[in-house]
């Protein structure tokens, strides 16, 4: 796994995620990276990567909406000007 620090350089994070607990894709996976978003500007996140942790918080066992809300809140918060993604290239199945 790889720790990727995404700086909040744009108004949007700019990724689309698929997956979550009780679905075919047990952990959230990046399916789109939007041009001009913070993730695209960072250049280290890739389509297909599976998100294991956000700011040290595990995505394991979280339903899709819970995981999406957590990522959105991590990007919205003013406490930090970055979001830490722990990602892996492997399709981690539980």
């Amino acid at each position: 796994s790889t720790l990727v620090r995404v700086a909040k350089t744009a108004s949007t994070l700019g990724i689309a995620i698929e997956g979550g607990a009780n679905t075919r894709q047990p952990l959230p996976r990046i399916v789109t990276i939007q041009r001009g978003g913070s993730a695209h500007n960072c250049g280290k996140l890739k389509v297909g990567q599976v998100i294991l942790e956000i700011n040290g918080i595990s995505m394991r066992g979280r339903e899709h909406r819970d995981a999406a809300r957590l990522i959105a809140e991590a990007f919205k918060t003013k406490e930090r000007d970055y979001v830490d993604f722990l990602v892996t290239e492997l399709n981690v199945s539980l």
Binding site: T12, L13, G14, I15, A16, I17, E18, G19, G20, N22, T23, R24, Q25, P26, V31, T32, Q34, H64, R65, A68, I71, A72, F75, S93
Partner: peptide, 16 residues
């Protein structure tokens, strides 16, 4: 394991 997984519903997609 694969059959069990395929029996699960596909996930929705959220843009962030």
């Amino acid at each position: 394991v694969r059959e069990k997984r395929l029996a699960l519903p596909p996930s929705e997609i959220t843009m962030l």
